[in-house]
């Protein structure tokens, strides 16, 4: 492992792994954040009295 450091190629290897980690991490974070955002929005809408199933809707909110 120590032979990797100190070679003139270290910058290239490091940056490719770094960008890989960054892009993949961003993808994961994006999916997770979208999920929690949508969960919250759904909960908010359902609390406001709307039901998803075909049961009758409650009193309309304005």
């Amino acid at each position: 492992m120590s032979e990797i450091f100190g070679t003139k190629y270290f910058g290239f290897i490091a940056s490719s792994f770094a960008v890989t980690f960054a892009v993949l991490a961003l993808m994961v974070i994006w999916v997770l954040m979208t999920y929690s955002k949508r969960k919250r929005e759904l909960a908010r809408l359902e609390n406001a009295g709307l039901k998803r199933a075909s049961s009758k809707t409650g009193a309309s909110k304005s």
Partner: peptide
């Protein structure tokens, strides 16, 4: 999609 359909339902309710 569930959010969208709820939002549309809410708009119709209003």
């Amino acid at each position: 999609r569930q959010i969208r359909s709820l939002q549309r339902r809410a708009a119709r309710e209003v």
